[in-house]
Design a protein around this nucleic acid. Structure first.
Lengths: 218, 218
DNA sequence: TATTTATCGATAAAAAATTATCGATATATT
DNA sequence: AATATATCGATAATTTTTTATCGATAAATA
């Protein structure tokens, strides 16, 4: 009998798992030992079936009438997301967003460790931001290989993003976390995940506009 | 005959529109007058039908064999997203992410204008970040009313997020852009849009982990 | 001990999103 | 001028995602 766990997991499910994790860690702090899908779903605007289906992909198992053991579930979700041990990453673009990410202390909780940053600007090179060195772009190739870096974070302006991504791919980066609002071309086999604020903002401003339109009419 | 434009637009569509906008503005700079869905889709990993369906919601009209007039399409998308004129916003939490957003120069392109920031920390209050004043929380209520602010941006740590949101709602904020990795409760009628980096990161680290697992096996 | 209840796990149904198809049309080509 | 082609707009088919249903089970309650 083979495993029931689906081999391909939807983005939607993957994006809900960190939400559950947050709730579960809260429960853990409160000393709760078990949690049911009903309880977790209570924190969100969707139902327990959704939660149950999402949790299924992690391989976690619950018991009827009781729910899931919180500690085990946290562990299962973290392992599934790859957050149980840290992935080293390089960041390119020490601007405002770059700085914010370099200063974010909780990334270790999320399986990310930004080792160093790179920038074109000679004025930035050689300085440190949150105790992390800013290096010249030329040094990236060697260091990626020497340090076995797999993740590249792109926080440069849109017009430079494709160039940076091309370099990253050429030096052996396997996964790219992109913050630039530009569509990027990447070769087969490289993982690209976009974290574009403008997309989220679009949803917000559209809803707001729709609301005003409604008020005008009604 | 009523309009063919759907009254409710999916998140997925809303999130793709800024991508098209970026491509279109590139084309505009290059002096291209017309753009077809086929051409736009070429920049992404989905087809022209998807693009056509998305553009439909904006009310834009194209012509067979030619495509859409770029300038008109840009205008239609911007208006649909509410990016044609700026929405004033307050930001709460002048930490790293807060600073990054305060320093982001292109928000005016996306219909957002961060007017001022608020913080609990007395050391921050009174200072300026990117020429924007950091004010004490107590001043928010009055200013929201006086300045007719509709958008609140939450960049505080997770444990303070719900408290900040409650204040925002109570002083009359209509839409909340949340960067804290916490599930938030909001009353009916308030718009909440989450821009949580951890969700995006989850997708990345999971894919990376899956890739390694595959390599181990095969 | 029997009954009720909350939950899981699995499956089925419903809804939503994506992709394919096709007639109409505007331009380019023969 | 006739034919070929690229594209739109609309609709249909497909796929994916979400939600509902239901038997099994573990605990609580009568």
């Amino acid at each position: 009998m083979t495993s029931q766990i689906p081999t391909v997991v939807s983005r939607s499910t993957l994006k809900r798992l960190p939400l559950y994790l947050h709730v579960l860690e809260d429960l853990q702090r409160q000393g709760q030992e078990y949690a049911s899908c009903t309880m977790i779903a209570g924190k969100f605007d969707f139902g327990p079936t959704q939660v149950r289906k999402d949790l299924e992909v992690t391989g976690a198992e619950g018991t009827a009438k009781i729910g899931f053991k919180v500690s085990a579930l946290v562990k299962d979700i973290k392992e599934f997301l790859g957050w149980h041990n840290a992935h080293d990453a390089f960041l390119v673009g020490a601007g405002n967003m770059g700085k914010a990410l370099l200063g974010y202390k909780d990334f270790d909780k999320y399986g990310l460790n930004i080792v160093a940053a790179f920038d074109q600007d000679p004025k930035k090179v050689g300085t440190k931001i949150f105790n992390k060195e800013i290096l010249p772009m030329e040094k990236m190739a060697n260091l990626v290989k020497r340090m076995h870096i797999n993740i590249g974070i792109v926080t440069v302006p849109a017009e430079f993003a494709q160039g940076v991504v091309d370099i990253m791919v050429s030096v052996g980066i396997k996964a790219i976390w992109n913050f630039a609002p530009a569509p990027l071309q990447i070769p087969e086999g490289i993982i690209l995940e976009n974290a574009r604020l403008t997309q989220s903002l679009a949803v917000l401003t559209n809803k707001l506009t729709m609301n005003f339109d409604k008020e005008m009419k009604g």
